[in-house]
C-alpha cells in the first residue's frame, strides 16, 4: 500500500513518519517512534490504555489514523515529567498506590493531566466522571481518584505560592 509522509510534533520534537493511510496512530507511536508508554488494550476505544493528548484534547490513539495527525501537537506519557524528576501526577500515583500492573497507567495519567487542565480543582465526582473513559482492572480506582485529587491540590497550592 502506498505510504505517505506525516509530520507531527511529538513531546515537543518534530517527527516525520512514513505511514500507510490505514495505520492507526497508536501503532505508529509505539512501533515507529518507539514510544511504548501508551498501550493497546482493546482497539475499540473503550479501555483508554492508548490515551495521548492531541492539540489539547485527550484522544484514544487506537481510534485515529496516523495520517489524521498531520501537523498535530501530540503529548504522550513520555512527554510528562522531566529529566529532573517525575511530574506531580506521576509522583502522586506512586505516593497513593494509584497503580498496580501499570498497563493502564500511562493512559490514565495522560488523561488525568488533561482533566486537570480542563478543571484544575475537580470534585471527586468530577474526577470519576472525567476518568470514566479509562479502564483499570487492578486498582478499583479508589487510589487513582485519590492520586488525582492530591495532585490537583498540590498543583493548586504551588501555583498559589507562585502568585
Amino acid at each position: 500500500m502506498t505510504k505517505q509522509i506525516v509530520e507531527m510534533t511529538v513531546n515537543g520534537e518534530t517527527r516525520e513518519v512514513m505511514v500507510e493511510p490505514r495505520e492507526l496512530l497508536i501503532y505508529v507511536l509505539r512501533e515507529q517512534l518507539r514510544l511504548t508508554g501508551p498501550h493497546v488494550g482493546c482497539e475499540t476505544s473503550h479501555c483508554g490504555a492508548c490515551t495521548v493528548e492531541i492539540n489539547g484534547k485527550s484522544v484514544k490513539s487506537c481510534t485515529m489514523f496516523a495520517v489524521q495527525a498531520q501537523g498535530a501537537e501530540i503529548t504522550t506519557i513520555e512527554g510528562l515529567g522531566s529529566p529532573d524528576g517525575l511530574h506531580v501526577l506521576q509522583e502522586s500515583f506512586k505516593e497513593h498506590h494509584g497503580l498496580q500492573c501499570g498497563y493502564c497507567t500511562p493512559g490514565m495519567i495522560t488523561r488525568a493531566h488533561r482533566l486537570l487542565q480542563e478543571n484544575p480543582n475537580p470534585t471527586e465526582e468530577e474526577v470519576r466522571f472525567g476518568m470514566a473513559g479509562n479502564i483499570c482492572r487492578c486498582t478499583g480506582y479508589q487510589n487513582i481518584v485519590k492520586s488525582i485529587l492530591s495532585a490537583a491540590a498540590e498543583i493548586n497550592s504551588a501555583s498559589e505560592a507562585a502568585q
Binding site: T36, G37, I77, L86, K94, G102, T105, P106
Partner: peptide
Amino acid sequence: EDARFTQGKG
C-alpha cells in the same frame, strides 16, 4: 515498580 510504570517505561 512505580517510577518505571508511571513514566511509560514498563
